[in-house]
Design a protein around this nucleic acid. Structure first.
Ligand SMILES: Nc1ccn([C@H]2C[C@H](O)[C@@H](COP(=O)(O)OP(=O)(O)OP(=O)(O)O)O2)c(=O)n1
Ligand SMILES: [Mg+2]
Ligand SMILES: [Mg+2]
Length: 1121
DNA sequence: ATCCTCCCCTAC
DNA sequence: TAAGGTAGGGGAGGAT
């Protein structure tokens, strides 16, 4: 069966104990290799130990998830990639770490991984109870044998088990597809920062602000020197400031990655907190009271109802640094901005005035991200408008002459250069702090002496708790130790609650600091413990921007075969440049780096290679302040000593999983078969690892970048005290998205809402001040019928999604709004608006893309939106309408509508719908097709009969689609976009009702609620004896309903029906319709489980077994479904 | 086979 | 206190 593909299957192996597990694993893997791509044998299982057992692995476990997956495969169990309340029977976890665990519905058993290991060792299914992670008895060693193999029926402690489903493998098709290709045109020209969100201030404005706001440069003690840079215009490269700083930077032993983890490790700590909180306040189910809620009322402004409610002129942005301020050393906490009346300045929270702009102005991640985006656009613009002249080349040639560098350039093949500024933020910052050169320095917000937060003791307690948990992890294997160690380092602050416990992150640290073990992204507290002498300096985003621009302009003056990576880094295809200037790579490097240092005062390192990977690795080797050319002949050797974690795409997770496979270096990786890699990591990732480990890289520089999505999200400071606040924040984020879309001259059709929700037992107080803490994250999206960039529409859709999720806003810890399925914004669709709004000519505005030749696009007040409909003072309460193709509801002219082509009409209807305030109960959004539950009844009623009929017909025709799939683990939510039959409409979600108490059985299906036997009766009898309705040639869509009805219609299956079904399946098999078999079995399984009938389950199991037998005989392998 | 949604991961 | 953003690759699994 072609299905074999690469799913979960492993040749038999004989690995026994987990004791010497690591070793055994290696041997086993090798064996599998040998077995070679014997795909066929893949499907075999060696035992039935885990028959009927389905597991989902959460977090890191000692047999790793991959290993458990393998074991389940081999021993007859089921491994679920996602947790499903209805299908997953056990959750394997070592601790509470992943918040997800805590909100899972269906109360699956959470069992320690050791259980799996012990079962394998014992070669039989052991009672899982001793291994329950939470049970009191769990203590430790277990091994209580359990009589027979699958007696789990015993209602250990939950009758729920009864209806527990036997899960069968799933996995049917699933081709590693990537799909989604969005046609998109190019953006337009403009300077790099025109769209940089908050900082979208014009250069002039910026300057003014800088000048007037001295607090700004702030932190830097010497404002003067600093300002010299700041006041320079950014646009071009006016960086003549020439600051020659003494060379510094001595070579440091290269350190590995930066501190990537964050919450993961943090999680453990938080988990400890959670535990404690949970223990203390046993069942304090109710909504956690918002402690600060008080201040809210007064704060609220009259809420401008205007059109531009949510636009937040970015002006704020630039100035901010001031509030933060002073450097660490010389503490001088500037006065917090005084608060009108209330005592101390209340923390600013999302949804409150100025929060967003203030947050953004201080967010380093926001800055590097938007700068990165801006530079990609900048390169696009430069390429588009380029004259063909590269002035920098004259300089290069002159330099060569003066330096006495002879001709004979490079004659090799493709040369890719990667260039990256050394400890960027620090290097820039040090220009203003020459006295700190040579010392360990880091850039961070915190300056030190945090208020006497008296929680050092509580932290100590947390730490102890954490330790306990770790030990509890039993395993104690290598990796566990590794993580434990890492964690301890980060969290083992004791005593004083001074800065040694600061949770402020270090954006960048110099090489002197790295020598002490510091890494970018590390907490200041931990950093100080590692390096007590660390000096910290403040951020200076404007300066970074200037240096970045200088970096780009420098390279752009030499060639435009550039792929921007970030504000301090890019790839350059030097092939043509070197050939045309007859220059050798390293000579070029010397020149460019010197130029950059001369202009910016900051060091950059460059690497050269035959492809992007090699160039990147070369840069790493070159740092700091160096250059390196990885020659083709040296690649093989070079790569062997490279750690896998140094490969692009190999982060914490992949590195960990590779390590579990015994792979740590590229050399190890080379010895691993492609098949195995793909088995574990998927087709693409596996192949990528395979190639990268050999220094091979197919990627081509992306010279014309096409943006695919635009988003704005904040996962900090989110603590809503009212739905209104939440809504307002969504509106602000939407306005931000609109602004960015406009800056990029794009529109989109898909709106995605992202949420971070406090995990079930996570403490109200997060480890990091105002941080998101331990959360579950989820997203929901809607595809609109027409593209838009209108913040109002975006916000409305996003809010609908919020409602739809039905989670109490007070649990939100982060929100994001994203627009995707982008297309260039043309005035084109103004056509529709015009059509419907008889009076309004399509604003011919901006016109085709490409438009503005750089120059700052207007920072634009909210307005901007091109074809904006006139907000007529319509009678209807429609909001002040805004942009794009949208007509006033009142403008709908039935006659006109009737003449429109079908597709257009649908869009109009859609728009019409959008323009209306959603009725209270309707929280649904449209998808490609309308769904009954998404229709606002009042809207429907208002339609003329014919239209009504059409809409309804449409709904019914499409109602089958889009069933909810998955039902992700954070069951924390509600029934997802459950369909709900036409008749009943979605219950309006209780706006603030958190459904902490999920129902036992989650209705995970579209149509009828599972537990509803009522409906069903005897529908039809499709299962006649004789040939009956089941035909091999039937389409799956016709077949499945029959299956469903079969199960639904009778309490107990009739034997003849079962036989008939088996015969039918056999026929399908003989006809090669394996997919249909899989589909039938899946549907059957679903419905049987839903029914929860033991009789049906038994029948089903028997059917599956017999079918599998047939399939095996026919194909030599089992069917995966 | 391919598309789509909802993740997860990675990178800066 | 602290400022935990944002874009893209890609995998799982369901629908078509
Ligand atoms: N976790 C991180 C990683 C990076 N950055 C910012 C600060 C860095 O200076 C800048 C560039 O990132 P790099 O990865 O290039 O790191 P550095 O330039 O600091 O050091 P290196 O010399 O390793 O390039 O991005 C950050 O704020 N947080
Ligand atoms: Mg760098
Ligand atoms: Mg970089």
């Amino acid at each position: 069966m072609r299905r074999a593909k690469r799913e979960e299957k492993f040749p038999e192996n004989g690995f026994e104990q987990w004791g010497g597990y690591m070793n055994a694993k290696k041997a086993k893997l090798e064996k599998q290799f040998k077995a070679g791509a014997s795909k066929e044998s893949h499907l075999q299982t060696t035992s039935k130990i885990f028959s009927g057992v389905s597991v989902y692995v959460n977090g890191y476990t000692i047999p790793t998830a991959d290993e458990i997956k393998m074991v389940m495969m081999v021993h007859g169990g089921q491994f679920h990639q996602y947790y499903s309340a209805s299908k997953t029977r056990f959750i394997i976890a070592s601790n509470l770490a992943d918040a997800k665990l805590k909100k899972i519905k269906g109360q699956p058993k959470v069992v320690k991984p050791q259980w799996i290991a012990d079962c394998v060792a014992a070669e039989k299914l052991l009672d899982f109870r001793p291994y329950l992670l939470y049970s009191n008895q769990s203590k430790t060693q277990p091994k209580i044998q359990f009589p027979q193999v699958s007696e789990f029926e015993s209602p250990v402690n939950s009758p729920r088990y009864k209806k527990l489903e036997i899960s069968i493998g799933q996995t049917l098709t699933s081709t590693p597809k990537v799909g989604r290709k969005r046609a998109a045109l190019d953006a337009t020209d403009k300077s790099p920062f025109n769209d940089s969100t908050a900082s979208a201030i014009s250069a002039e404005e910026e300057k003014v602000m800088l000048e007037s706001d001295d607090s700004k440069s702030s932190s830097s003690s010497d404002f003067n020197l600093f300002s010299e840079f700041k006041l320079n215009k950014k646009k071009t490269s006016p960086f003549e400031v020439v600051t020659n700083f003494p060379e510094d930077e001595e070579k440091e032993p290269s350190v590995s990655n930066e501190e990537s983890d964050f919450e993961d490790l943090l999680d453990c700590t938080l988990v400890a907190q959670e535990l404690r909180a949970a223990e203390e306040s046993a069942l304090k189910k109710t909504e956690p009271p918002l402690k600060e809620a008080v201040t809210l009322p007064k704060k609220e402004t009259p809420t401008p109802q205007e059109d531009n409610v949510f636009i937040s002129p970015p002006k704020v942005e630039v100035k901010i640094p001031q509030s933060t301020a002073p450097k660490p050393e010389e503490t001088a906490p500037p006065p917090k901005e005084p608060e009108p009346h209330s005592k101390k300045a209340p923390m600013k929270r999302a949804g409150e005035e100025n929060f967003l702009s203030e947050f953004y102005s201080n967010s380093r991640l926001h800055h590097i991200s938007t700068m990165g985006t801006a530079f990609k656009a900048y390169v696009n613009d430069l390429r588009r408008n380029h004259s063909g002249d590269f002035p920098g080349r004259q300089k290069l040639l002159q330099w060569k002459r003066e330096a006495g560098i002879d001709g004979h350039g490079w004659s090799g093949g493709v040369v890719v250069m990667h260039i990256d500024m050394d400890c960027f933020f620090v290097s820039v910052g040090l220009r203003a702090h020459p006295e700190l050169r040579g010392q360990p320095v880091a850039v961070t917000h915190a300056k030190g002496n945090p208020p006497p937060t008296a929680n050092s003791s509580s932290r100590e307690a947390e730490f102890q708790m954490y330790r306990k948990r770790m030990q509890n992890k039993a395993g104690t294997s290598k990796s566990t130790e590794h993580f434990a160690e890492a964690l301890e380092k980060r969290l083992s602050w004791r005593g004083d609650g001074g800065e040694a416990s600061s949770m402020s992150e270090i954006a960048s640290c110099n090489y002197e600091a790295r020598a002490a073990g510091l890494r970018n992204g590390m907490f200041l507290g931990e950093a100080l413990r590692l390096c007590p002498d660390l000096k910290t300096i403040a951020y200076d985003f404007d300066a970074y921007k200037e240096v970045s621009t200088a970096l780009y302009d420098t390279l752009a003056s030499l060639t435009l075969d550039i792929e921007a990576v970030s504000c301090d880094e890019m790839f350059v295809d030097c092939t043509r440049l070197l050939a045309e200037t007859d220059t050798k790579p390293l000579d070029f490097a010397t020149f460019v780096r010197a130029e950059i240092k001369k202009i910016t005062g900051c060091p950059a390192s460059t690497g050269f290679g035959a492809n992007m990977l090699q160039a990147r690795m070369a840069t790493k080797k070159a740092k700091p302040d160096g250059q390196f050319h990885l020659l083709p002949e040296d690649v093989v050797e070079f790569v062997k000593n490279t750690k896998v974690s140094d490969l692009p795409g190999v982060g914490r997770n992949v590195a960990y999983r590779l390590q579990a496979l015994g792979v740590q270096t590229c050399n190890d990786l080379q010895k691993t078969s492609l098949a195995l890699l793909q088995e574990h990591f998927g087709a693409k990732v596996g192949l990528s690892l395979h190639k990268h480990s050999r220094g091979e890289d197919d990627r081509k520089l992306e010279l014309e970048h096409v943006r695919k999505s635009v988003s704005a999200e904040v996962n900090y400071g989110v603590r809503f005290s009212s739905l209104a606040e939440c809504r307002r924040f969504v509106e602000e984020l939407s306005a931000e998205v609109q602004r960015r879309l406009e800056a990029a001259e794009k529109q989109g059709r898909c709106v995605t809402l992202k949420l971070m929700v406090k995990a079930k037992d996570a403490p109200e107080r997060t480890a990091k001040f105002m941080g998101h803490g331990v959360c579950d994250s989820l997203s929901r999206s809607v595809t609109l019928p027409a593209e838009t960039s209108d913040a109002k529409i975006i916000a409305r859709e996003a809010m609908k999604l919020v409602d739809q999720l039905g989670i109490n806003f007070s649990l939100f810890r982060g929100m994001g709004v994203q627009m995707s399925k982008l297309s260039d914004k043309k005035k084109a669709d103004a056509g529709m608006t015009r059509f419907l709004q008889k009076s309004k000519p399509p604003s011919p505005v901006a016109s085709t893309s490409r438009a503005e030749p750089k120059a700052s696009t207007s920072r634009a007040e909210p307005v901007a939106s091109t074809s904006r409909a006139e907000p007529k003072a319509s009678t209807s309460r429609a909001e002040p309408v805004a942009s794009t193709s949208r007509a006033e509801p009142e403008a709908l002219d039935e006659a006109v509508l009737a003449e429109l082509p079908e597709d257009i009409r649908q869009e109009v209807l859609r728009e019409y719908k959008l323009a209306r305030p959603p009725s209270a109960s309707s929280s649904k959004s449209f998808a490609a097709e309308l769904t009954m539950s998404q229709v606002d009844p009042s809207f429907l009623e208002a339609l003329p009969d014919d239209l009504k009929r059409e809409v309804v017909a449409d709904l019914q025709a499409s109602k089958t689609r889009r069933g909810d799939s998955k039902l992700l683990l954070p069951a924390l939510t509600s029934p997802r976009k459950s369909k709900v039959s036409p008749k009943k409409k979605k219950r309006g979600r209780p706006i603030g009702g958190a459904k902490l108490k999920p129902i036992i059985k989650v209705p995970r299906r579209e149509s009828s609620p599972p537990a509803k036997p009522e409906v069903v009766p005897e529908v039809k009898v499709e299962e006649e004896k004789d040939e009956g309705p089941l035909q091999v040639s039937m389409k799956v869509e016709d077949l499945l309903p029959l299956i469903k009805e079969w199960v639904k219609s009778s309490a107990e299956p009739v034997e003849q029906d079962t036989e008939l079904m088996l015969q039918f399946l056999e026929k399908l098999l003989l006809s090669g319709k394996v997919d249909k078999i899989a589909a039938v079995l899946r549907t059957l399984k679903l419905n049987v489980m839903r029914k929860g009938s033991a009789a049906w389950i038994g029948i089903f199991e028997g059917l599956v077994e017999r079918t599998q037998h047939l399939v095996f005989n026919h194909y030599g392998s089992k069917l995966m479904f």
